[in-house]
Every structure is written in C-alpha cells, then in structure tokens.
Design a protein around this nucleic acid. Structure first.
Lengths: 164, 164
DNA sequence: ATCTGTGCAAAATGTTTGCAATACA
DNA sequence: TGTATTGCAAACATTTTGCACAGAT
C-alpha cells in the first residue's frame, strides 16, 4: 500500500496528516517483515528522519485500528507488527533455540477457529496461533533435547518427518 | 499435583529445595486459574509468607521447564501461567471489552498443528491459540463496534488484524 | 565446606502520560 | 483560530541483574 493511501485512511478516521505521521508511514511502507516500534524508530533515524519514539508508539495503535498493520509474535515480551497487505495471513513456528521464525498457512485451523467462535457467539477481531519449540536444525544439533519433545498439551504434537 | 511431587521434580533437575521454593510451590498448588508472578507474590503475602518477588521470577521459568506450569494468555503485556495438571490443555477466547476469558478445546486444531509441525520437521514444545474479539454480551451491548459482528455467526473468521 | 539460592536495590525493557510548544485544518 | 499533535522528561509496569549474605547438601 502506498503511504498516500494509508494517509487517506487515517484521515478518514479523523486524524490529522502531519509530517511525523507521513514519515512513519513511509518508513513502514518499506519494511518487509516483522518489526517493533523500536525498529521503526531506528529505521527512521537511519535515514535522518526524526519522528520521536513517542509519536510512533502513539500512531501504531491507530494503524492497527484501520487495518494497515496487524500484531504478530506474542511470545517475546514486546509488540511486533507487520503490514497487513505485505503478505497473506499466516501463523508462526518459533524456534526457542535459534530464534528462527517460520511462517505457515493452514486453512483448516482458520476453519476450526471459525467454528469455535460461532459456537460461542464470539465476534473475533484477531487470532494468534504460535507454536514454539525446536526447528529441525536445532533439534538435531542440541545433544539432549529430551524433555523438550514433551508437549505441554495433551495432544501428541510431535514431528515425525523431515522438515521442509 | 502435591507440592512434594513438584519439589521432587525440581530436585531432579539439580535445583535445591529451599524454604522460599517450598512456599512458592505450595501457593501455586492452591491457585486455580491463570495467574501472574505478581499474583503469586500477593497470594503469598496474604498468608504471611515472605518469599520475594525476585525469587518467584527466578523460579517460574524452572517450573515451566519441568512441566509444572505452562504459559497462557499472551496478549496482555505480561506473563500468565497455569498449572499443567489443573486442567486439560485448552485454548482461549479473550474479550477485549470486558476481559472475560472463555476456554475451549478443539482436537481438530491440535491435529492441524500436528500436521504443520510434521511438515516442517519442527519439534514443538508448546503452542498458543488465542482468539481476541468481543464476547456475545459485549458484541450486543456495544453499538456496532466497527462491523465486528459481521462474521460472528456467518462463520467467516478473518485474519489477524484484518477485520475491517 | 562448598556452592547454590536469597533478597535488596538498582538497572534494564518496553510502553504510557503530563504538559508546554507547535502545526494542521 | 482552535484544536489535535508533537516531543521532552518523567512515570510506569514488568522483568532481570549485581552483589553480599544465608542456607542446603
């Protein structure tokens, strides 16, 4: 999405178009993957722009609200975002050892979530599906990954085959 | 689980059994639902015990590691835990308006996650599935909350942050 | 006796808020 | 003009760390 279009969107929600906001939107428009508020700030500074950290923190929720961003990756103690239009919705496999994040899509899961919401009369706004554990490489290289293979859930959520 | 058994488990992983640890484990053993580090502290203090906040923060990760606790509820800015044996694994519907948390189980989702891990050669340790939105009551009482109800019953659960 | 665990105080994160100055509409 | 927005500094909430002392094995 061009940042012009984003500007129009935030304008439509009654927000003013300002220089810092334009800069932030521009910066976000060029970010590819996941990013934090701090990432946006550093990225801005790297190109000599000086919108402040506070302004970023204040703008991000609005960008969530108008659907320009979505929140992702909840298991790391701080907020991560990504542009909604940058890629189709997906979930994450997060390696606890090397930090690698693998994305996946799974229509079946979406369907199941669907059903659950319908059952409970729940109006969903967003969902998180994250699996944490060891990626193939780390599972191999860590000599004793015993204990880690035990699922926290009742299900037997174990890998059987080779990765990717 | 009796805290004796928990003590044995942490002993087996090379940790010493101490008074503060015994108190913390005792307190956790009587907690029913979700709780934070702070909850444990307050709960301890309420019964005149004085294990420190720091000790709690240092013990919790070990309890995760030995499978006495699991982490739950990631979308609130601080860590929440629950006893693994307290209830079977389940996922959460979280109302953004009233804060109510509804638990649900869904074998189909577990199966799907299973499949995904197998495909990627990923060794899962835990997973999070959370749906945030509006519970039935809040969806009704909030005057048209930005079209959130749109798919509540139609069965079209949309992607994260993608509801507009 | 040894070495781990404790707890205080302080630091480190990540995020939010009060307020005076500024800039948009 | 009038109000929303900015940015600084300071507050905040949660979690982590340095260090000297206490306690478990």
């Amino acid at each position: 999405m061009k940042s012009d279009e984003s500007l129009k969107r935030i304008q439509n929600m009654g927000l003013r178009v300002t220089v810092p906001r334009r800069q932030i939107l521009n910066e976000i428009a060029r970010l590819k993957g996941h990013f934090s508020a701090e990432d946006v700030l550093l990225s801005l500074r790297a190109r000599g722009k000086r919108a402040s950290r506070v302004t970023i923190y204040r703008l991000l929720p609005s960008l969530l609200e108008v659907g320009i961003l979505r929140e992702v990756i909840y298991s790391e103690g701080h907020a991560h975002y990504e542009r909604v239009e940058a890629k189709p919705h997906h979930e994450h496999l997060i390696c606890e050892s090397c930090g690698r994040v693998v994305e996946f899509q799974c229509p079946d899961i979406e369907d199941s979530l669907n059903g659950v919401c319908a059952e409970h009369g729940f109006a969903p706004r967003a969902h998180i599906v994250e699996i944490t554990g060891l990626c193939r490489d780390c599972a191999r290289s860590l000599p004793d990954a015993e204990g880690r293979m035990a699922m926290a859930s009742s299900g037997e959520l174990q890998s059987t085959g080779d990765m990717q």
